[in-house]
Design a protein around this nucleic acid. Structure first.
Lengths: 207, 207
DNA sequence: CGTCTATTTGAATGTACTCAAAAGCGGTGG
DNA sequence: CCACCGCTTTTGAGTACATTCAAATAGACG
């Protein structure tokens, strides 16, 4: 990762290395561009289980996680359907609601004590208007999100639930330490009871 | 839709109104910008069942359909798994392979006699380098793709197969006229035999 | 320690799958 | 025009997997 001598600006920028990494990984912002970006990010502390979005609201900001984790889910007749998670250095929001200014049908909740930085719609548009690098950043973020979503969609249609679970813990070995099994289950498209049985089967085959 | 007096440039541009619509729907290109974009698009005619991408190849171009339809699918132990389709005015390609320059694990095949325009990686980068409007176009395309992929993913985890099928034909009433049932089935994440039974149940309930 | 929530287990049901074969459909050539 | 071919769709029977509803067990936290 590129090192940024941003301490010249502010002494505690070292606290934000996760954010700075996330921003500069995709586009080589110079110090001034990066600083301008950082200034638009509003910090916010969340307790575990706090919501930053509830169904019916319009999603007004996209947020990036500095510490902790968020869960993106919807509510249907079977209960909560987890759709996505975000941890350190990852962006989250209801992109559709955010872009179309229509009410969301999703919730975003902290699954741990979490520190986020939020970027409002207007500030984002201002960034896009300010320079091509910000526009490019937005493009690369959206491209990466699309690739991840599509890969995930393909797994759902082509792999059995057990294989989806094994792939998930292979790609994210520590995920069970941060996300309750019930939320992993609905993310995988099955009920918690079913995942429990799948986990039992895997464990019994290992011994 | 905005009208573009591009006949000033070329007499048969009227043939490309689907393409021009697709490009100008997202960004208000002026005539010169649009013309520059169009010049980079290489036309190609496909017969039904022709491939423009096969697994193992690197996806070298993104294509936009002017007439006809394309199917994006992969091959696994159960056979062909259809993942996406593109018709008039829609872009398609293996975005992941295209961006990362890694071999694709997908195929793209014409499901009808099809006319496409392709944009190479280098030409796309050249566009992005040329001006912020092209960069913005790329961002908006990726954003829309992400929203569609995510919505589709959410349906797979939260709705039963019958409801996914009903939603599909509600959103695309004519899709059965263009896509064989077997491909719709795997797109929905089920086997063709299962979709056949689902369709029979729906029909029997209607009478 | 008691309470609340998460996870696991059991039993019955429902849905989708596999393997196999029959029926339907479109095109070609006799 | 009909017979045949290849491919798609449907149907049948048996099996596998996931679901529901309910209850028991395990863990976390005050």
């Amino acid at each position: 990762m590129a090192t940024f001598p941003l301490k010249a600006y502010t002494a505690d920028v070292i606290m934000y290395d996760i954010i700075i990494n996330a921003l500069t990984r995709l586009v080589e912002f110079d110090e001034e561009e990066l600083f301008y970006f950082l200034k638009l990010l509003k910090p916010r502390m969340l307790n575990k289980n706090d919501f930053i979005l509830e169904a019916g609201e319009i999603c007004k900001t996209m947020v990036i996680v500095n510490r902790g984790g968020l869960r993106y889910f919807s509510l249907n007749d079977k209960g909560e359907q987890s759709n996505w998670f975000a941890f350190e250095g990852e962006w989250l929001g209801d992109y559709e609601s955010f872009l179309t200014r229509q009410p969301s049908s999703h919730f975003i909740q902290a699954i741990e004590a979490t520190e986020i930085f939020s970027l409002s719609y207007d500030d984002m548009q201002q960034l896009y208007a300010k320079g091509v690098k910000y526009e490019r950043f937005g493009r690369l973020i959206a491209e990466n999100l699309f690739i991840k979503a599509e890969r995930s969609r393909n797994e759902l249609t082509s792999l059995p639930a057990e294989q989806r679970y094994l792939n998930l813990i292979k790609d994210h070995p520590d995920i069970l330490k941060r996300i309750p099994v019930q939320h992993i289950a609905t993310y995988l498209g099955i009920q918690p009871q079913s995942l429990s049985r799948i986990r039992r089967n895997i464990a019994s085959r290992k011994s």
